[in-house]
Simulated scan of single mutants.
Amino acid sequence: MTTTQTDLHIDRPVVADGAALWRIAKDSGTLDVNSSYSYLLWCRDFAGTSAVARREDGEPVGFVTGYVRPERPGTLLVWQVAVDAAHRGRGLAGRLLDGLTARVAAEHGVTGVETTITPGNTASEQLFTSYAARHGARLERAVLFESDDFPDGPHDPEVLYRIGPLNTPRTEERTS
């Protein structure tokens, strides 16, 4: 079955999506894959700050997981972004990220986004750099976790991307 971007629907994940999200993350080849249990919990406990793209038959083909930072309630931390191989290269990750942040901004007053990216993950670097540009937001980068911070063996550093303030209707209302 061939699908186009218009055949896809973006909404909140449900627990039944956890297995598909785990598979998409595992098949990405670039993400640190968490336990399958964590994806089930994510779909249950953080559905309000996450998004899933579905085919017409309801099958997930991409996702963004995130949460609002407790110490910075105006900031959405994007944990993972992944798109099934058959749907890559068509702007779906950007669409997911835009849709999620618009929803979370409206519901929680979020005005900034954070994520971490390992050096050399060009697709993620481009995704978040173009996201910042689309939203007229400043982008700052700094190493959040050094390689030596990871207890389970060699790991690239995680670079924090801090994006904001976002140019969203909610942000504009506050500055008017």
Rank of each mutant, 00 (worst) to 15 (best):
M1L: 13
T2Q: 12
T3R: 13
T4Q: 14
T4L: 13
Q5G: 15
Q5E: 14
T6K: 14
T6C: 15
I10H: 08
R12Q: 13
R12C: 08
P13R: 11
V14L: 07
V14M: 09
V15R: 09
A19Y: 04
A19G: 06
A19P: 02
A20M: 11
A20W: 06
A20F: 10
L21I: 07
W22P: 02
R23L: 09
A25D: 01
A25L: 08
A25Q: 03
G29K: 08
T30W: 11
L31E: 00
D32F: 14
V33G: 02
V33W: 03
S36H: 12
S36F: 07
Y37W: 14
Y37R: 15
S38G: 09
S38L: 11
Y39R: 02
L40T: 09
W42I: 13
W42F: 10
W42S: 15
F46A: 12
F46H: 08
S50F: 04
S50W: 01
A51S: 14
A53F: 05
A53V: 01
R55K: 15
E56T: 13
E56C: 12
E56R: 15
D57H: 09
G58K: 07
G62C: 05
G62N: 04
G62K: 05
V64P: 03
T65L: 09
G66F: 02
G66A: 07
G66C: 06
Y67C: 14
Y67T: 13
Y67H: 15
V68F: 11
R69N: 08
P70L: 10
P70S: 14
E71Q: 14
E71H: 12
G74A: 15
W79M: 10
W79L: 11
A82Y: 05
V83S: 00
A85I: 07
A86Q: 12
H87Q: 12
R90Q: 14
G91L: 13
L92F: 11
A93Q: 06
G94N: 08
R95F: 05
R95I: 01
L96N: 00
L96Q: 03
D98A: 04
V104D: 03
V104R: 00
A105S: 15
A105Y: 00
A106S: 12
E107L: 09
E107A: 06
H108L: 12
H108N: 13
H108K: 15
H108I: 09
G109F: 11
G112H: 12
V113M: 05
V113I: 13
V113W: 00
V113Y: 01
E114K: 03
T118D: 00
A123G: 07
A123S: 10
E125R: 07
Q126N: 12
L127F: 03
L127W: 01
L127A: 01
L127G: 00
F128D: 03
T129L: 13
A133V: 14
R134E: 08
H135Y: 10
G136C: 04
A137P: 02
A137G: 06
A137L: 06
A137C: 08
R138D: 14
R138P: 08
E140S: 15
E140P: 08
V143H: 09
V143P: 05
P151V: 09
D156F: 04
D156R: 12
D156I: 03
D156Q: 14
P157N: 07
L160C: 06
Y161V: 03
G164M: 01
P165W: 01
N167Q: 10
T168R: 00
T171H: 07
T171N: 05
E172G: 08
R174K: 08
S176F: 10
